[in-house]
Design a binder for these strands. Sequence first.
RNA 1: GAGCUCGUAGCUCAGCUGGUAGAGCAACGCCCUUUUAAGGCGUGGGUCCUGGGUUCGAAUCCCAGCGGGCUCACCA
Length: 564
Amino acid sequence: MPKRWKETSVFESEFERNLFELRKSKLQQIEALGQAAYPNQFPFSHTLAAIRAEWNETTAESLEATRVTVAVCGRLMAIRAQGKAGFATLQQGGQRLQIYVRKDAVGDDGFALYKLLDLGDHIGVTGYLFRTRTGELTIHVERLTFLAKAMLSLPEKFHGLADLEMRYRQRYVDLFTNLDSREVFVKRSKVLKALRKYLDERNFLEVETPMMQQIAGGAAARPFKTHHNALDIDLFMRIAPELYLKRLVVGGLDRVYEINRNFRNEGISVKHNPEFTMLEFYQAYANYQDLMQITEEMVEYVAREVNGTPITEFNGRTIDLSKWTRLTMKEAILQYWPEEAGPKPATTAFENLDVLKARLVAAVDSLQKAIEAIKPVEPAPVAEGEAPSEPPVANVRLRELKTIASALIELGNEIEKNIPLGKAVYHLFEAVAEPFIYDPTIVYEYPTVVSPLSKQKPDDPEHVERFEFFVGGFELGNAFSELNDPEEQHKRFEDQLKERAAGDDEAHAMDEDYVRALSYGLPPTGGEGMGIDRLTMLLTGKKSIRDVILFPLMRQEKAKEEEG
RNA sequence: GAGCUCGUAGCUCAGCUGGUAGAGCAACGCCCUUUUAAGGCGUGGGUCCUGGGUUCGAAUCCCAGCGGGCUCACCA
């Protein structure tokens, strides 16, 4: 049996149900004044932004001398009534503008309508610009038009919607009550525009490849599974567009890019959302060196387009996206090697698993001594009404060292299982270097064993022409010279199958059609992927990926009542 | 998955060592023709996340659960 409207869980309380009824009766009164309850359009002459752009600095005298009549619309965000007159604040396009309504200017019906308005209502007004006693640019309203009613009450007008859960779940409220939130998504759109502009100007072709795939390839990750009924086949949501994009380069589309969602069935964190947006681009006849240059240039370009500067504040640090460092993976390990872990690994540690293992054992030992030596500092008591200060430096370092130590212990256990040397070096890099790389850094020379799709260095088959780039403590992207030898690719897939058989459920799947595509000849090609959510985080200073995704994945709320 | 932490009116929050729930905003009524977190007077509004337990008595203490946040784990 269908539920009656009033019993739906649209409403959170009796308070809201009653308010809804009250607003309905106001709507009827508004109709009685000759206004439509839900009109279709309003022909405005200016956006609020346009008014700000043109008259923000115009003096009161000048506005009085040359009367400017405008028609604007927006949502009411504040109402300050004063008997037979009143002010209100209109919000539209992320801008606000004050309006002034006087009974003698809008007439009895117009003023009756003003009295029936609530916070959140949409209205249109026609009138002329003036400045109030305090100098604020204001529209002196001559005609009010009702446009749509807010049937629920708005969040507290001074603090806005503060509850993070509600901001994520009810983003529609967050967006109009917290304009800084809106600004993040405006910037996100600028990031996408800037990337497209950069690539389009270089003759890249934007393409779209399957997001439902029979083999989820192109990355190491667990996929989501779904099913097509008519064909009765299982499909995977893609974890990367990589293999399809390279098929396109085989097909003669020399420069392609795709900006869209990838889906990975993994944990959720401040840096991870199950669906996330990725840019991937491929350029024929280029190698990873060319990509390094493009990366540095493109990130800086986007920062300037979005923020007007390559400087950004992130997680309490100032980052200059125009200044890049390039390190080999081993250099990065040595540079970020914590002094508390004792002597840095010798060159031989990167060539021999046993030597590496011995160094790790010593490092863990040294780290544990250092950890014991640090006395955690009691955080300063928080005075009433003050924000808690940053945690003491010693405590932060203590936590970091603990994290490194446990990662190294874990790595030691992995080595016991005789993992390939390259994989061990890579994990070592992830443990000691990656989380600490704040300034823009390109890390190159990756072990072949962790790079099944990259091309080996001509003089060193143990390493590939690949780099990842890191900013703000996380990986921003990944790029390499594409492996285009079909026989070698087939062998790498086979190796991955062995890894999978050995228990690595994120090892790459075999994709024979991809090998077949390579068999027709992929020109030398450089390809790169970049996380757009993370780039947006950097450029907006947001620490959590949820703050740059409009509708981040949330657990389902417990049903408030049985479904009817 | 683990640890820490939070959940009180539509919203933002207070509520001490247990004594039966408060403020501001929002809402409703009245006053107010240059206000701007407008103001003044008055009114209504609560399954204190849920379920157990301890107690004469629980928003408060204990246990379990649900949901959020952070940290860790997971995650090229």
